[in-house]
């Protein structure tokens, strides 16, 4: 389950970079939320159109498929920022100090390698569908209404680009903590025990009441 953690802040350059990235990430996540919201209206519109006016929405499936990358991937960096992506923290939960930062650093560097590779591959996937010598720059189109697919393919390298920046900030954050032997480093999600996570989640819900 989502177990978001605290990210400490101070006046250092690293922390300022962390906070500069945050509004961009939150904007991306809000785009994802709004896309979900529109999905609801789109489906309602389609059903009502069909049931009561005999005119279903042409290209309904194509629109949904085009929106899915925004919904599913756009917020990936926002979720990485506070460590909401799930993991098994039996081991890291028991570690502390430099050993912990070493494990976290290795983990983040591996993710960085993966995401750089995926961003490259995702960009090429976009590039194969994009050719501005053609109408609408489209070299690949959807099945029912011939919607160009390149805008939705472009979402992926963009989201991964933001995530690469986030991972660099976190790698520096953990590296700094490892070298300086810090207890509470800034700009990285701090490991909480499962119980502390649950507490945080519960108080988040409480805030809504």
């Amino acid at each position: 389950m989502a177990g978001s953690a605290a990210v400490l802040e101070d006046s250092s350059l690293l922390s300022r970079l962390d906070r500069a990235l945050l509004p961009i990430e939150r904007f991306c996540a809000l785009l994802s939320g709004l896309a979900i919201f529109s999905l609801m209206f789109l489906a309602a519109y389609s059903v009502v159109g069909r049931k009561f006016f005999g005119s279903p929405l042409l290209g309904y499936v194509d629109y949904i498929e085009a929106a899915m990358p925004i919904i599913a991937i756009m917020g990936v960096s926002y979720v990485q920022r506070d460590g909401t992506h799930i993991r098994m923290d039996m081991l890291v939960g028991a570690l502390h100090g430099r050993v912990l930062w070493l494990f976290e650093l290795i983990s983040v560097l591996l993710i960085l390698v993966l995401i750089v590779a995926l961003a490259w591959g995702a960009w090429e996937h976009f590039d194969r569908s994009f050719d501005c010598s053609r109408p609408l720059c489209s070299r690949d189109s959807s099945i029912d209404i011939g919607l160009p697919t390149w805008p939705s393919k472009l979402v992926v390298p963009v989201a991964f680009g933001v995530l690469v920046l986030r991972l660099i900030v976190q790698a520096v954050g953990y590296g700094r903590a490892l070298i300086l032997g810090l207890d509470n480093p800034v700009a990285v999600p701090l490991t909480l025990t499962v119980a502390e996570q649950a507490q945080a989640e519960a108080s988040q819900l409480a805030g809504h009441e």
Partner: peptide, 24 residues
């Protein structure tokens, strides 16, 4: 007004005679 599952050129043909191609 017939709701027909048809894609591509076929979908266009049915549109031309007033049917509604529906994407499933």
């Amino acid at each position: 007004g017939m709701r027909v599952r048809a894609t591509g050129g076929l979908g266009e043909a049915f549109t031309a005679v007033g049917a509604v191609p529906t994407s499933v």
